[in-house]
Design a binder for these strands. Structure first.
Lengths: 342, 342
DNA sequence: GTGAAAGCGCTAACAA
DNA sequence: TTGTTAGCGCTTTCAC
């Protein structure tokens, strides 16, 4: 392994000069720089990230904590974050909780992250007070994606508004009995979006003079299978709803399946709306509230890098709450309710 | 930030003793160790990974190179790898190529990985000779997942056999006109599986006395949309095949959609088989050749860790080719061909 | 513009 | 069993 000393020896200069020349710092003749660059290239020199980190005090590494890597939403956010981090020569350290409390504990309640990374991205989780305290002690920029964490930097959508636009769409079509399929509003992996989408759902109905029916609210645990089960229990009854709002596309897919299994036609007998604009939404011709997913990862990464930059140049930096726009994508799973068709 | 010196000062011992005590090395009185542990805990000491790495010469980091993180197969492999790596206190550095040649070049043809990681996991890519040469120069354990790379450590399935079992299943049902939907056997992101699955398809037909029809082979680019397009061109003709073998479940989903769009009943008019046992395969009731995906990530991670262990203890270690079992999962998308029903 | 020397925060020989 | 002393491979003052 050739090190900076080898290069210095080769060009008969000090390692200080070689270091400066290689990093493009000022105070080096162009001639000197050229000589150094040539020698470094010739010797196949590559600096040791570890040594650079120890000497510079920066890890140039960002931790990304993900509830479940295998879910489309999370892997898409990771994709976005990786894109900007690798572009700025930062390493992305992946921590996949895989839904495990033990893993969550290990990441947040031990010294795992301490001195290991310059910044942290946390996806969708709603941190506990203790976790926030520990993250605070890290004294590093932290950004939450897809969760509302007051006082901290966040990048997300307005979940209430997203639900609202979906419900309003159904109301405009003439639906009066609208069901909700969501996820636990608390639990092992506590997310912040479900509660907001649920209240957006209820409020919009109320605003339209409709009364939310508690018996039309189901837990679909944000999975396809959960959506199918919820859909079945919702639709297999005489007074079934004419429309279902699922708080995620995956649950909406499940509802579509339940409808199909029960012989219901969509949208003639039942309308379905989701949230996400999942890569399969088009495939299922699902009407949904689209949210920019990769973009949230990108923006979050840019945010922590900006914070790091500000820190380095001594500026003071305030955590920002970024809210990205959603938009209703009308497709084939929504239409007027039965008996109200043109 | 409290460092090892602070702990040493606190207990009035040398940093060497503190280091030994904290790491559980032999040659330290239990009493001493207890004192040190207590002080470290009380002072909130956590070692600096960077310093440990520089001093020990090990990064305790494994790079995982992924063609597309957002695809189910890859994120599942990452999941498996992360599980074992985090369990052994290794960091997982994620590199997502996102299908970009530039990204691939950056990872393999620059000094990016040099001195940065102890081992590398490469998913599905078929490396070029140049890339192999560079990986070789890293002098670090490298394991390829889902690709056949002669002479290197690999973890994969027998792609020819997987295709064979799917085709044999169709033949046993009585199918004679079987189509193939696969992916480019070369290209920007060069994978090794497609070619093997294609030849497994052809060979099995030949072995059964059937002649593979080149006009029944399509490129579905391993995506749902590609599968839909391929399916449409395959099925929208009078002499359409009675069965389609898709080299991945996602393409099979696309074929199912094409069939549905064309008004074909499955499996009455058309049988479809995929490969993977994707999380949605059950949802689509798709007959498929299941492969252990997370497991491949797990085994690959275990492999590089074993290699690292062998290296550390001076044993010599030979790259192994691990082949994991596949099995046909019969579901509802396959049945006897039209006109041959019981 | 360049070099000498002192760290960065640990580990690891080698002594004691 | 414990301490002393060198590093690990860079960056960064501070001189010159």
């Amino acid at each position: 392994m050739t090190g900076i000393k080898d290069v210095a020896r080769e060009v008969e200069m000090s390692t200080a000069t070689v270091s400066r020349a290689l990093r493009g710092l000022p105070g080096v003749t162009e001639e000197t720089r050229a000589i150094v660059l040539e020698a470094a290239l010739r010797l196949g020199y590559a600096p040791s990230p570890t040594a650079v980190r120890l000497a510079s005090g920066q890890t140039r590494t960002v931790a990304v904590v993900v509830p479940y890597v295998t879910r489309w939403f999370f892997s898409s956010v990771v994709h976005g974050a990786e894109e900007v981090l690798s572009g700025r020569d930062y390493d992305l350290l992946l921590y996949n909780l895989a839904g495990s409390t033990a893993a969550r504990h290990r990441v947040f309640d031990t010294d795992l992250l301490t001195k290991r990374v310059d910044a942290v991205l946390v996806l969708s989780l709603r941190p506990t007070t203790d976790e926030l305290a520990r993250l605070d002690r890290l004294a590093r920029p932290v950004t939450f994606v897809g969760a509302d964490v007051p006082g901290w930097a966040t990048v997300r959508i307005d979940d209430r508004a997203a639900a609202r636009s979906a419900i309003q769409h159904l109301i405009d079509l003439g639906h009066q009995r609208v069901a909700y399929v969501g996820g636990a509003t608390e639990g092992v992996l506590d997310f912040s979006a479900p509660a907001d989408r649920l209240s957006g759902f209820r409020d919009t109905l109320l605003d339209a003079g409709l009364t939310p029916d508690p018996t039309l609210e189901r837990d679909g645990s944000f999975t396809i299978a959960g959506g199918t089960a919820a859909g079945r229990s919702l639709l297999d009854r005489p007074d079934r709803p004419t429309a279902v709002f699922a708080a995620s596309d995956e649950m909406a897919f499940g509802v579509l399946r339940a409808a199909r299994d029960l012989g219901l036609r969509v949208p003639e007998d039942l309308s379905v709306v989701g949230v996400d604009d999942h890569e399969l939404a088009d495939f299922f011709d699902l009407t949904t509230v689209a949210q920019p997913v990769q973009e949230q990862g990108r923006v979050a990464a840019q945010q922590v890098l900006a914070a790091l930059g500000a820190k380095a140049s001594g500026e003071n930096w305030q955590p920002r709450q970024v809210i990205l726009e959603t938009r209703l994508v009308g497709r084939g799973t929504t239409g007027p309710p039965p008996g109200r068709r043109a």
